[in-house]
Deep mutational scan, measured.
Amino acid sequence: DYEVGESVTVMDGPFATLPATISEVNAEQQKLKVLVSIFGRETPVELTFGQVSKI
């Protein structure tokens, strides 16, 4: 299970290999909103559970 505030690594898509912090969890739809730090700015990205891995 994923929790808000948890650190994960993006495994898929254009942000693969980047660390991210979970900002929202939708367990019903198996989706997460995460904040990816790009060029010093936090960018919100919506991903599925399968696109991230716990650190």
Rank of each mutant, 00 (worst) to 15 (best):
D1P: 14
T21Y: 09
S37P: 06
F15L: 05
S7E: 13
L32P: 00
V52W: 01
Q51S: 06
L47C: 07
I38H: 10
K31F: 08
A27P: 10
L32Y: 05
K33M: 14
N26Q: 09
V52Q: 00
L18V: 05
G50A: 14
K33C: 10
F49L: 04
I55P: 10
I38F: 10
G40D: 07
Y2T: 01
G40H: 05
V8S: 00
K31C: 07
S53G: 09
S7M: 15
S23D: 06
T17S: 13
V34C: 09
I55D: 10
E6L: 06
E28S: 11
V34G: 03
A27M: 13
E28H: 10
L47V: 11
G50T: 12
V8H: 00
G13W: 03
E46L: 09
S7R: 15
E3M: 13
S37N: 13
E28V: 10
A20E: 00
T43P: 03
L35A: 05
V36D: 01
G13H: 03
L18A: 06
L35R: 06
E46F: 08
K54W: 05
A16H: 05
E42S: 05
T9C: 11
A27S: 11
L18S: 06
P19H: 13
I22K: 01
T48S: 14
V10Q: 00
I22T: 01
I38S: 07
N26W: 14
N26L: 11
V34Q: 00
V10N: 01
K31H: 07
I22M: 01
V10E: 01
T17K: 09
S53K: 12
E6G: 08
Q30P: 02
F15H: 06
T17Q: 12
S37W: 14
L35N: 08
G5C: 06
E3S: 12
V34L: 08
K31V: 13
G40W: 04
S23C: 13
G5V: 01
L47D: 00
I38V: 12
K54L: 06
G13Q: 01
M11H: 06
P14I: 10
Q30A: 08
L32T: 00
V45D: 02
V45R: 03
M11S: 08
R41W: 11
V10M: 05
E3K: 13
A20P: 00
D12K: 08
E6Q: 11
G50L: 13
G5K: 03
A20Y: 02
T21C: 07
V25S: 03
F39S: 12
F49I: 04
V10W: 02
N26K: 07
E46Q: 07
E46A: 06
A27E: 11
G40P: 04
E42F: 11
A27G: 09
Q30V: 04
I55W: 10
A20N: 02
V34I: 06
S7I: 15
T17P: 07
V4C: 05
G13L: 02
T17H: 12
E28R: 09
L18N: 06
D1C: 11
A20V: 05
V4A: 06
F15K: 02
Q51N: 05
S23T: 15
D1R: 13
K33A: 06
E24T: 07
A27V: 13
V25N: 02
K54E: 03
Q51Y: 03
S7D: 08
I22N: 00
P44R: 11
R41T: 14
S7F: 12
L32N: 01
I22A: 01
A20G: 14
P44I: 15
G5R: 03
R41K: 15
E28K: 11
T48A: 11
T48C: 10
T21K: 11
K54V: 05
F49W: 08
V45F: 07
R41G: 10
V52P: 01
V52Y: 02
E28Y: 09
V52S: 01
T9Y: 12
K31W: 12
F15S: 02
S7W: 15
G13F: 03
L18C: 10
V4R: 05
R41I: 15
E42A: 06
L35Y: 09
S53F: 07
F49V: 04
T9P: 01
Q29N: 10
A20D: 00
L47W: 01
E6W: 07
S23Q: 14
L35M: 12
S23E: 10
L32G: 00
P19I: 15
I22D: 00
D12S: 13
G13S: 03
P44L: 15
T21M: 09
E3V: 14
L35K: 07
E24I: 06
P44S: 15
Q30H: 09
L47N: 00
E28M: 10
A27Y: 15
K54R: 10
E6R: 04
V34M: 04
K54T: 05
N26S: 08
A16L: 04
